[in-house]
Amino acid sequence: MAGSLQDQLLKAGLANKKQAKQAKEHKRKTTKQKRSGQAVDEQQQQQIALEAARKEKAERDRELNQKRQQEQAQKAAQAEVRQLVEAHRIELPKDAELRYNFAHGSKIHHLYLDQKLIDRLARGQVRIAFLDGSYHLVPTEIVERVEQRQADVILPRPKDDTPAEDDPYADYVIPDDLMW
């Protein structure tokens, strides 16, 4: 088989004259560019573009990994909080008749408690936690650990409503049973 590869492809019918002419033209242009130094510049530009694309992909991957790690850390904190609250919660008495009202967000909710638990809530020995759509009573030792992981689970303590020292109406106490 004598002849160039191009001639062999033309004889076999795998290429036509137009494709052969385009291949020759392309080869001639590349050799001319190599002589003038343009091909080297194009290769450098391609390498720079590839390097920039690699750096961009690495940055995207790094950000994605960081986001995944944050999500995993958040899920782990939620699991720890759930475990702490469920392990240390104080069981609500089933026969309690006193209704304890408290604010959560902009709504008033209530729990039925006995006087002992209401006194502990008033002294700050017990706090209310909101977890998975229900309210639980948790001792203050556990509250600190829960707040370190997720502060929004524990409801804030009620504000002290004792009048200020310089309040001119401090001597006039509003009765608890007053109805408006």
Rank of each mutant, 00 (worst) to 15 (best):
Q69F: 05
G124F: 09
L9V: 04
P156N: 05
H110I: 04
A49K: 04
I154S: 01
R120E: 07
D160V: 06
H88E: 11
T30D: 00
K29M: 10
A77W: 05
R60Y: 07
K159N: 05
G133D: 12
L111N: 03
E165K: 14
R60T: 07
K75I: 13
K17H: 08
R123D: 08
G105P: 12
A12L: 15
Q46S: 11
A73F: 02
D61G: 00
R68M: 14
K11W: 13
E91D: 11
Q74H: 07
R149W: 07
L92Q: 07
I48C: 12
H136Y: 13
E86S: 06
A122H: 04
K67H: 11
E165S: 14
E165Q: 08
Y112I: 06
K11Q: 11
L92I: 09
L113V: 02
R68G: 01
K55F: 04
N16F: 06
I118V: 14
G37K: 04
A23C: 05
Q78Y: 10
G105S: 14
M1E: 06
H104A: 09
D7R: 07
A170C: 14
K34S: 09
Q46R: 12
R60N: 14
K34W: 13
E80A: 08
Q150L: 00
Q150A: 08
D171E: 10
A58W: 05
L111M: 14
Q19E: 15
V81Q: 02
A53Q: 15
Y172W: 14
L178R: 00
Q45N: 06
Q6A: 12
R54D: 04
R157E: 11
P175V: 00
Q72K: 13
E63M: 13
I48N: 11
L117A: 02
H136N: 00
R62E: 07
K21N: 10
A122W: 05
V40L: 05
R145D: 10
P168R: 03
Q43M: 09
Q150P: 05
F130V: 03
L137C: 04
Q150W: 07
A103D: 10
G37T: 12
R145K: 12
R157M: 15
K75M: 13
K116T: 11
D161T: 08
Q69C: 02
F102M: 08
G13A: 02
K159F: 08
Q46K: 11
A76Q: 05
A52H: 08
R157Q: 10
R82M: 04
K116L: 05
Q47P: 02
Q72G: 02
E147A: 08
Q43P: 01
E80N: 09
D114Y: 01
R62F: 13
Q8M: 15
I108W: 06
V126T: 07
Y172L: 12
D171Y: 14
E25S: 13
A103T: 15
R157S: 14
A170M: 08
L84I: 12
E71Q: 10
Y172R: 09
R120W: 14
L137T: 02
A53S: 11
A129Y: 02
S36A: 15
L9D: 02
A2P: 01
P163Q: 11
A79P: 00
K32W: 15
R60H: 04
V85F: 03
V173N: 03
E25N: 12
R54W: 01
Q74C: 13
Q83G: 01
Q148V: 13
